[in-house]
Design a protein around this nucleic acid. Sequence first.
DNA 1: ATGGTCGTAAGACGA
Length: 276
Amino acid sequence: MPRKAAAGRAPLRIATWNINSVRLRLPLLKDLVAALEPDVLCLQETKCPDELFPHEGVAALGFGHRLVRGMKGYNGVAILSKRPILLREDDPDWCGKGDCRHLGVSLDAPGGPIELHNFYIPAGGDIPDREKNPKFGHKLDFVAEGTAWSAARPARRAIMVGDLNIAPLEHDVWSHKQLLDVVSHTPIEVEALTAWQRGGEWHDALRHFVPADQKLYTWWSYRARDWRAADRGRRLDHVWVSQDLVGGLTRHAVLKDARGWTQASDHVPVMVEIAA
DNA sequence: ATGGTCGTAAGACGA
């Protein structure tokens, strides 16, 4: 994809992908880079302790700057960058669990530092009731913490991305009606995520490009016999930008092809280009 | 049809 400067600033490409094991799917990163050419790539569900992170393979793709926050078996996030990144030391330990679901950095962008946050919000289990299912409670608590965190500090030159595990709009799911009781699209989750977005004055960068009445998915279940034919997707992966960056948005991509790759993740990479 | 399939890591558990 050719790059074109906008608003007098060089375009910056930020991508996000729930990779579902960085060690297993390391070879696929090469295809992602060829397709999207991201300057910064945020990963979720790396499922990799920091001492085992495949730094060499990632560096070979041009990501000279890397910050990882992983653990054994579950969760894990990473930010891979072609530009310098600096860890934000003062960010919260979400729900006090130390479970590697967030990484915040200061990114050296063409027009000055940008605050970049990479999130992996809890999936929330199967039953949408916090009394019967503590995992659902954890998810709601996490989103509530995020809401308070954003509201306390207005976002300037800020981007947040990641697997938020909530599909907020009617056309972010294949059937609004059939998913109203399914974790990821219940009204309580949708309201909670919308409150975070509203209170933090975040702008939904993907819906900036794709009208709300058009279907848009970033995840298709492994359990479908034929994910493409059924097309029962959900938009669980998001890019939000602060209002002062909205005017710089130049393009986006949802790499649906990646769902058909050999040994695919159930999520596909999402990219936003922004003059920043 | 209340299933189905993944990854981790070695039997469940989380998604």
